[in-house]
Computed example of a mutant assay.
Amino acid sequence: MRTLDQWFDEYAVSHQNPVNKKIHYICVPAIFFSILGLLMCIPSAIISNTLSLNSPLIENWAAIVLVLLLLFYIRLSVVMALKIAVFAFLCLFANFYIGQFVNLLLVSVGVFAVAWIGQFYGHHIEGKKPSFINDLQFLLIGPAWVIQNLFATKKQ
């Protein structure tokens, strides 16, 4: 099993160009956000009837998927899992809020499409194919890599 640093090292190989990196810093969180929005749009009567927590932030498919996703991150790093959990909660809250005013499905589909176009444009600039082409697990590594890079402390 690879460590988180090994995943990051392999992911970084196709993310060297500064423009591609900046695009990823925007598009990867946008894709994560939009996927949670899409999952929140799936009817959740089964979950609501089973859990009966009366909380739309918890009783939806996005929350269920996040629990499974966090198990993947916990295996790699508890600290990273906590960072992802905080970001995911913010995404859930924002999606819930957006859904109160506009059609969340349409917003999520739009953000998803534009963000993926950005991703592929970034890889066109980079001249390398996306990492997930070789291993789908890189779709889960991308958000952690962005969080790691955006919030890394500068070394003196």
Rank of each mutant, 00 (worst) to 15 (best):
T3E: 08
L4Q: 07
D5W: 02
F8A: 10
E10P: 09
H15Q: 15
N17Y: 06
P18N: 12
V19Y: 11
V19D: 09
N20Y: 10
K21Y: 12
Y25G: 14
F33K: 11
S34K: 07
G37R: 00
A45E: 15
A45V: 13
T50F: 15
L51C: 05
L51W: 12
L53V: 00
L53T: 06
L53Y: 01
N54R: 13
L57Q: 05
E59T: 07
A63W: 03
I64L: 14
I64P: 02
L66I: 07
L68P: 01
L70T: 04
F72I: 01
L76C: 00
L76K: 10
S77G: 02
S77D: 06
V79S: 12
A81R: 06
A81W: 01
L82T: 11
I84M: 12
I84R: 03
A85G: 07
A85N: 01
A88S: 15
L92P: 11
A94L: 15
N95M: 06
N95K: 07
I98P: 03
G99S: 02
V102A: 08
L104G: 04
L104A: 04
L106C: 05
S108C: 10
S108F: 01
G110V: 01
V111R: 10
A113H: 00
A115P: 07
W116Y: 13
G118R: 03
Q119W: 06
Q119L: 12
I125N: 05
E126Q: 15
G127E: 05
P130G: 10
N134K: 13
Q137G: 09
Q137S: 14
L140W: 05
G142D: 13
G142S: 15
A144I: 04
W145D: 12
A152Y: 00
A152S: 10
T153C: 01
